[in-house]
Amino acid sequence: MNKPALPLESTDTYNDQIRIVLVETTHSGNIGAVARAMKNMGLGNLWLVNPSSFPDEASYARASSAADVLDRAQVVSTLDEALSECVLVMGTSARGRKVPWPVVSPPQAAVTAAEHSSRGPVALVFGRESSGLSNEELQHCHYHIHIPSNPDYSSLNLAMAVQVICYELRMHYLRGLEEEESSPYLDAMLVPGDRGWDVPPATVNEVEGFFGHLEQMLEDVDFHRRDNPRQLMARLRRLFQRAQMDQMEINILRGVLSSAQKAAGAREGVRGKATAARVVDEGQE
């Protein structure tokens, strides 16, 4: 029944201290989907409170390669059992309770969870698919987490809600690594010169050589006249400068220009031979 599972990313204390708690899940496939969402974000500590059905084929089928998260899952009868060792509890909830409760957004929940995880387990609690957490269950929570979804269609699938929270936990975790190790987990890679780009950026001289070559090619194919340039080269310069080309891209483009010039020269040679042939024929007449 169990599919082979990929190993968890790490046994990092922070990741292991974050406890995802599902209360009375109705559909076992959702448990598998939650396991997959957790493993996507490097988490693996899953607790199930009185699930309707688990373990079963549906949960493992939906988990895909996150079967190890299901293998490690703790199944308990009550929410109190799932929370007994925890130093902080946060439960997902919609706003609008009769008794206002401290409410945080998913990013704020991630920061708060990280701050408390060094002291002990932190529980993030998700309720039933149809009705969420009861008022009594929410009163077990230090904070409520509100996911600001579209008010006209606010209901989230259980695994989707878990994925949102786990993503924020992951982002906060990676930002911490960035500060400590300068690891490029979150760096954008947009242009040559950014960490991870495979080819160095083109130098000014290389780009200027390309522009000179481009202008000559355009003249060779009768598309551009140096004595009446209008704004053609200025606009082409603006276009290619926006691209922030690397050295390989410059070489490729110059190869294209050379091929175009060669093709234009070959056609010109054919036309020249045809003209000469006509002159000879006319002379023979």
Rank of each mutant, 00 (worst) to 15 (best):
G212L: 14
A82S: 11
A114G: 04
V256L: 13
L83F: 09
Q163W: 02
G96K: 06
E206V: 05
D281H: 13
M160G: 14
S155Q: 06
D12L: 01
E129A: 11
S65F: 07
A37P: 06
D194R: 03
K98A: 14
T112P: 05
H213T: 07
D220N: 15
Q139S: 09
E136P: 04
V34H: 13
S64Q: 12
H146L: 02
L174F: 02
A234G: 13
V207P: 00
M90D: 06
R175F: 03
D56M: 02
A188G: 06
G44W: 02
N205T: 06
F211M: 11
G272V: 06
A260W: 10
G255F: 08
D194C: 02
G120V: 01
F54L: 00
R238I: 00
Y173T: 00
G127S: 04
Y173I: 00
D71Y: 06
E219P: 03
I147S: 03
L138I: 13
E181H: 10
D12F: 01
R19I: 00
I18V: 15
V49W: 15
P201M: 09
A264G: 12
E85V: 01
A263S: 12
L253H: 09
G42D: 04
D56E: 11
E129S: 11
Q231A: 09
F126K: 04
L124C: 11
R230N: 13
L218M: 15
D80F: 06
F210A: 04
E219D: 11
R128E: 05
R195A: 09
A159N: 11
E24I: 08
G44T: 13
D194V: 05
D56I: 04
S84W: 00
L88F: 15
S93D: 06
M41Q: 08
D198W: 01
G29H: 11
V69F: 02
G265S: 13
G196Y: 05
S131Y: 12
I145P: 06
Q17Y: 01
D227T: 07
V207H: 09
T25C: 11
